[in-house]
């Protein structure tokens, strides 16, 4: 674990409001004046009742949601990059090289095998195909996806298997920043432990981790710090 802690994610006064044009432009305020930081080697777990915008924070950091207000910066290749001002191309590059985001559901691609789904982010970073597949296989193996399933498209897998493919896809790459949105939600105890081991390893190699974890036991297993999100009153 590196000694000198470095800020990897800096969120300052983040606000997010959704305007629903199809419903008479009703405004849905989800976040307001939310600030936090995550440093290298930290695993910060967001805590709040469901529907209070935990996922919105993660999606804002990953660039999936636009920054509504305030500032979100991530350290990309040594520099803090302001996501609200970054070009789509920069965001793409950050996603390729800096941020690994485990969403709640795997977005399956027709006809692409589990092994290639996992190898893809490695190949996007320039890892040769053979090496990428080997590392993908290793990661799938660690997550107990049997080798006979590697050549099948994950669309046919169970929810738990799909979720493990989703996790393997991100953890096969040593991203400096990991965003984990309920990575263990649909897993049984044994598989949950496997995933938590991997998260702990990532933390120990110095990754800055921002996670949403549903159950207390999982949180306790990996969290170095908790941040609580206060619920906002729903605006009309």
């Amino acid at each position: 674990m590196p000694d000198d802690k470095t800020v990897m994610i800096a969120i300052e006064s983040l606000a997010k409001t959704f305007t629903l044009h199809l419903r008479g432009s009703v405004e849905l305020r989800v976040l307001q004046a939310f600030s936090m930081q995550v440093e290298t080697g930290e695993c910060v777990v967001l805590r709040a009742p469901s529907g209070t915008g935990k996922s919105t924070v993660l999606r804002s950091v990953s660039g999936n949601y636009r920054i509504g207000g305030g500032r979100v910066a991530v350290r990309h290749e040594g520099e803090m990059v302001d996501l609200s001002a970054a070009s789509p191309r920069t965001v793409m590059e950050i996603r390729r090289n800096t941020i690994g985001y485990v969403s709640q559901f795997l977005r399956v691609i027709p006809r692409v095998s589990a092994l290639d789904v996992v190898a893809e982010p490695l190949m996007a970073r320039g890892v040769p195909t053979d090496e990428a597949r080997e590392r993908a296989g290793t990661m799938l193996g660690r997550l107990h996806i049997p080798a006979k399933m590697w050549d099948l498209p994950p669309a046919t897998f169970s929810g738990g298997e799909q979720q493990r493919v989703n996790i393997a896809r991100v953890l096969a790459v040593d991203y400096p920043i990991l965003l984990l949105d309920e990575p263990t939600a649909s897993l049984d105890d044994a598989n949950r432990a496997l995933v938590l081991d991997l998260v702990r390893e990532a933390r120990e190699r110095g990754a800055a981790i921002l996670a949403i974890l549903h159950d207390e036991a999982s949180r306790a297993a990996v969290a170095t710090r908790y941040v609580d999100l206060a619920p906002l009153e729903a605006a009309a």
Partner: peptide, 30 residues
Amino acid sequence: DRMLVMRQGCVVEAGLTDQLLDDPQHAYTQ
């Protein structure tokens, strides 16, 4: 990777594909 949303000959919204689909801003994109 990226997307342009067109309506009546104009680009009404442009950006990362997942951003536009998951967090659409313009009424037409929504």
